[in-house]
Amino acid sequence: MDAAELPPPAAPMRALVHAPPPTTPWTTGLYDCTEDRGNCWLTCLCPCITFGLVAEIVDRGAMASGASTALYMLVGLASAWWFTPIYTCFYRTKMRAQYGLQEDPYPDVCVHTFCEWCALCQEYRELHNRGFIMDIGWHANMEMQQRGGGGVATVPPAMHVDGMTR
């Protein structure tokens, strides 16, 4: 069989590969605790409070920060504190999905297993840098945003065009 008689080469098979969703970097690094020393100390002394504040915002008010704080303590006491990093890791993963954040510098489970306090501080700073006032909770942040007094990044700003509002 000479070259003229050979069938044409098969077209390369193209796998249906979906591009990963766009991700953005965190506004602060995992170890940037010097940017917010107050929260750093609070998290070192009582990580359950920082977790509760973060969880309320990430859950969009479905559970109050006090309830999340109590659940963190209960999970810790029931499991001799070995399960809390796994529990809090789910909130980091949920937060990354909500804001398109990179899984950086390590996978979420590793960050929470080996750097639990740093991870909680970073999540707190991220939400704060996105315009949330962490101490007042989800519902108060939404009320303030609706009145025009806050810069919460989860709700688009109202548009004013020719006297019309949306």
Rank of each mutant, 00 (worst) to 15 (best):
I136P: 02
A97K: 08
W81M: 07
Y91I: 05
C40K: 11
M1P: 06
T165I: 11
W26I: 09
C33T: 14
G151F: 04
P8F: 11
S68G: 05
L45K: 08
I57E: 10
T165F: 10
Q102F: 05
I86N: 07
A4W: 04
W82I: 15
T165G: 11
P25Q: 10
G163V: 12
M1T: 09
A153Y: 00
T165K: 12
V17T: 14
H112G: 06
H160C: 04
A67R: 15
E116I: 00
G151V: 04
G76Y: 09
V161E: 10
E116V: 00
Y91Q: 08
G150M: 07
F51I: 03
H160K: 03
P9I: 06
G29C: 11
P157S: 09
G137Y: 02
A158N: 01
H128T: 14
A15T: 04
K94C: 09
G38V: 13
M13V: 15
L127G: 03
T23P: 00
W82P: 01
L6N: 09
A15P: 02
T34Y: 05
Y91V: 08
L120Y: 08
L53N: 07
A15D: 13
Q146P: 01
G52P: 12
M63K: 15
M164W: 12
P8A: 15
R147F: 07
Y72E: 11
V109R: 10
D36W: 08
Y87I: 11
M13T: 11
G151N: 14
T165D: 08
G100C: 09
A80V: 13
H112F: 05
M159E: 10
L120H: 13
